[in-house]
C-alpha cells in the first residue's frame, strides 16, 4: 500500500515535470482519475463571473447547452441541460470536462476549451489560443458547481 502510494506520487511528479516543458503557453495540469483536482490558477474561481461567462455567446456554452437561466432566450439543445451539473459532477470532473471533453469521448462535439494542439485550419485571430483562459475555466467551474438539483 505504502509502496503504491509512493509510486503514484512519483508518477504525478514526473507528469507535472513533463507538462512544465509544454511550449504552448498553457498552464500545466495533471489528470488524476477522471478529473483535474487542482485549480488551473491555484485559486478558486468566481462563480458570479462564471455565470456571466456561461451566458456570454463568445464562450459558446449557451449555443449548445440550456440551463436555469430564465432571462436568457435562444439557448441550445445540442448538449445536456446544465441544471444539476454541480450534483452530477465534482469540481475536479467539471474541470477536465471543460479543459478536454475529448478525453472521455473522442467523437464528442464539445470543444476542448483549454487546448491548442491537434487542431486544423484555426482562424488567424485564434491561432495558439485556447477557447477559454485558465481564469475563465476556473470561474465557470465555480459557477457550475453551484448548479445543484
Amino acid at each position: 500500500m505504502a509502496r503504491s502510494t509512493v509510486c503514484i506520487v512519483a508518477t504525478l511528479a514526473s507528469l507535472a515535470l513533463a507538462s512544465h516543458t509544454r511550449a504552448d503557453g498553457l498552464v500545466p495540469y495533471t489528470i488524476v482519475g477522471d478529473g483535474i483536482a487542482d485549480s488551473l490558477t491555484g485559486m478558486p474561481g468566481d462563480a458570479a463571473r462564471g455565470r456571466a461567462l456561461v451566458l456570454a455567446r463568445t464562450t459558446t456554452c449557451i449555443l449548445c447547452h440550456s440551463g436555469p437561466f430564465p432571462e436568457t432566450r435562444f439557448q441550445g439543445d445540442l448538449a445536456p441541460d446544465l441544471s444539476g451539473a454541480g450534483t452530477r459532477w465534482s469540481t475536479s470532473q467539471l474541470r477536465l470536462r471543460l479543459v478536454d471533453a475529448s478525453h472521455f469521448n473522442p467523437d464528442t462535439i464539445m470543444p476542448s476549451y483549454y487546448r491548442t494542439d491537434g487542431l486544423v485550419r484555426v482562424g488567424r485571430n485564434f491561432t495558439g489560443k485556447p477557447i477559454l483562459s485558465a481564469t475563465e475555466i476556473e470561474d465557470i467551474v465555480a459557477f457550475l458547481a453551484t448548479l445543484r438539483d
Binding site: 487542431l119 486544423v120 485564434f126
Partner: peptide
Amino acid sequence: LQREGQLNLACTNC
C-alpha cells in the same frame, strides 16, 4: 467530414 477551427467541428457534426 474534416473537423476544423478552434472549436474543432466538422460540417457533419451538426
